[in-house]
């Protein structure tokens, strides 16, 4: 009643929260798993892999910036539909999205990941890490693929993924938040709902702590993405200024 999270939140409240977050995730997930099912398992022909590898670095960066930006727009819509998010100040909404939207894109990537072929759905087909060679960030790409693989291995349901995404987005320890306490309450409630759903699904007790460990991996991926972007921008400032999506620059440009 006073907005406090668990233990006061009842099972019915947690079920309701899980339902709402799950529905928001479903409505904003960009691709339904079923849509991709027919192409899953298909390997990209070598000629197409070569085509990506031969692209000039600037063009490949631009393509990836566009794809990331598209995915982030869906994450913004997801955030808007999370209970309580739009009641936060606009400053805090922006702080949470700036820090967390790419993290959610990385989480969502595991839905579009083909574990057998180590490939992710990109530009209309399943692509392995070699497709991204022209970016000149092999280490970061390898880490992103490793992250997707490790998250896939937990075999989370869509509802669990939705709640984990909301939990990450509502991180109360982001710098520059005005109302940390309110974000903390929302995050705590989301964590309780996630815990509740994991229990309901008879998941191992360790899954929640596994997921908490993944949070630091996500942060590391995002800060490495920012470093790579800075390095790229230092060499190609005009490409970024003129050809990168404005939203991408707003989020990562500084």
């Amino acid at each position: 009643s006073n907005g406090e999270a668990s233990p006061t939140a009842s099972m019915a409240e947690l079920d309701h929260l899980a339902h709402v977050v799950s529905k928001s995730h479903h409505e904003t997930c960009q691709y339904l798993k079923e849509e991709l099912q027919p192409t899953r398992g298909e390997r990209l022909p070598q000629a197409e892999v070569d085509g990506y590898q031969r692209k000039p670095r600037e063009l490949m960066w631009q393509l990836c910036a566009v794809k990331i930006t598209e995915a982030i727009q869906y994450v913004v819509e997801f955030a808007k539909r999370i209970d309580g998010f739009m009641e936060l100040s606009q400053n805090d909404q922006i702080v949470l999205l700036k820090a967390g939207s790419l993290e959610v894109v990385f989480i969502r990537m595991c839905r579009l990941f083909d574990e057998q072929n180590n490939a992710v759905y990109f530009d209309g087909k399943f692509a392995g890490p070699d497709v991204f060679k022209a970016l000149g960030c092999d280490d970061l790409i390898a880490s992103v693929f490793d992250f997707a693989k490790s998250l896939c291995s937990l075999q989370l349901t869509e509802e669990e993924l939705a709640l984990f995404s909301a939990f990450v987005l509502l991180s109360a320890d982001r710098s520059w938040l005005q109302d940390k306490l309110q974000v903390e309450k929302l995050q705590q409630k989301t964590q309780s709902a996630l815990q509740h759903v994991l229990q309901k699904n008879q998941r191992d007790d360790g899954v929640l702590s596994e997921l908490r460990c993944r949070v630091s991996a996500l942060r590391s991926l995002c800060s490495r993405h920012t470093e790579k972007l800075s390095a790229f921008r230092a060499v190609h400032p005009d490409i970024v200024r003129m050809h990168f999506p404005p939203l991408y620059k707003e989020l990562f440009g500084a």
Binding site: E27, T28, E70, Q73, Y74, V76, E77, K80, M86, Q90, Q93, I94, L97, K98, P246, L247, E250, L251
Partner: peptide, 20 residues
Amino acid sequence: KEKHKILHQLLQNSASPVDL
């Protein structure tokens, strides 16, 4: 707000440019 113009707009719009 000026610095985050697009994000601001996306948050304000009830329907965003994304075709959901």
